[in-house]
Design a protein around this nucleic acid. Structure first.
Lengths: 219, 219
DNA sequence: TTTTGTGAACTAGTTCACAGCT
DNA sequence: AGCTGTGAACTAGTTCACAAAA
């Protein structure tokens, strides 16, 4: 029906569920793999087999943004990949700041997987004078968190990753928001209160472990 | 109606949704905080206010496992905390093995938050001869992944955390399963195929970043 | 024929609203 | 009066099933 709209335009992102959005990211990764394998086309049922998903689910997710498939044929791998990158906003490099130069913060700063594919770790911050000025093993300098606003503005950083201890997280989140960051990935085990225009995603490692534990057979 | 059952007994864990299980973990953390603040009782609506949740949701989650509250009064903080620990299987210390001594693996091994509260990082593995025998900054020795089965059996390790690169993840998962681990927390961007008795939880940091990106206002 | 795109049916998850205790 | 526990109502998410297109 709706002829392929100019990619993502006209679709209100707020109306798309987070479940759909995270599946889009999954599809994108899979398409990159398929491209690497030299595949030119892929069907929704082929994709579905690779994850544990229903084919109609995948078609529905994609159909939100336009008609990318060809009936009887499937999806063209390269084209769909570019469309997904555009839909996810990955056609430009996004700069990321990590706040909290503890073990996790430094590991994320140095880990290639995190820094590749559309993201660049542009800065690492801490409030500990002992750490400020030192470098991670990967060579990134730890900067004073009081300079967050300045660096965010100068470097055009858009995303903040919070890896400080829980008691400091709320204050840091507030600081990030007022520095102009509009998306926060929070690893601290604390619920953050931020202005409505800032999107927060919590990743609680302990919660994941405890959930696994729950399903484990009991002694 | 159902008088408080002997804690968790008689409730088939498989029938409880993962959403509920992860909320239980959230409630537990909140109760620990409340205990620290010296609170003796808490109502479902008080708890609901702390997260962004509905009070009936919380009552329903808890009611699956028994009647822990008192009408007109609420829940007793200490008692409910102990019940939740027992329900989640946290009344005994669970040992964890980390497979993959890269930046992330080492960071998780050393990070106190991950290792505390019912979990102990019992071993760290890698297959790189350069790394085997070396120590993390926290002092944990990197062991040869070929000794996984042996160490898992000897130490009574139950949970595996996979922090190897994506191409190695499937093989490592298989190895974990055959070593007797029944729960895997997978940080590699790859879907794992494992025997049905092994529970896998995927944590994909790139996926989280991309999802955040999707909701960000466009240039 | 094959596979998309999509309304309709279904399933899971959440919220409401109130009876039943304390 | 106040708050839990829970059936009933509602909402969101998934799967089915088929018409439409190549």
């Amino acid at each position: 029906m709706a002829r392929a709209r100019p990619l993502g335009t006209g679709v209100s992102r707020g109306a798309v569920s987070e479940l759909t959005a995270s599946r889009l990211s999954l599809y994108l990764r899979c398409l990159s793999e398929l491209e690497g394998e030299g595949a030119t086309h892929v069907s929704s049922s082929n994709l579905a087999r690779r994850f544990d998903l229903n084919a109609a689910q995948i078609r529905k997710d994609l159909a939100i943004f336009g008609e990318f498939g060809v009936r009887g044929v499937g999806y063209e791998v390269g084209t769909l990949k570019r469309h997904l990158q555009s839909i996810l906003g990955l056609d430009q490099t996004r700069k990321v700041a990590i706040i909290g130069a503890g073990h996790l913060g430094q590991a994320l700063a140095d880990s290639g997987g995190f820094a590749s594919g559309g993201f660049r770790i542009a800065a690492l911050f801490d409030d500990d004078p002992q750490k400020i000025g030192s470098r991670t093993r990967g060579g990134l300098v730890v900067q004073d968190v009081r300079r967050l606003r300045e660096v965010v503005a100068r470097e055009g950083i858009e995303i903040g990753v919070i890896t400080v201890p829980a008691p400091a997280a709320q204050e840091v989140a507030q600081r990030c928001a007022s520095a102009g960051l509009r998306a926060l990935l929070n690893f601290a085990p604390a619920r953050l209160t931020v202005p409505a225009e800032v999107r927060v995603k919590n990743v609680d490692l302990k919660e994941h472990l405890e959930t696994l534990c729950f399903y484990m057979p009991r002694a």
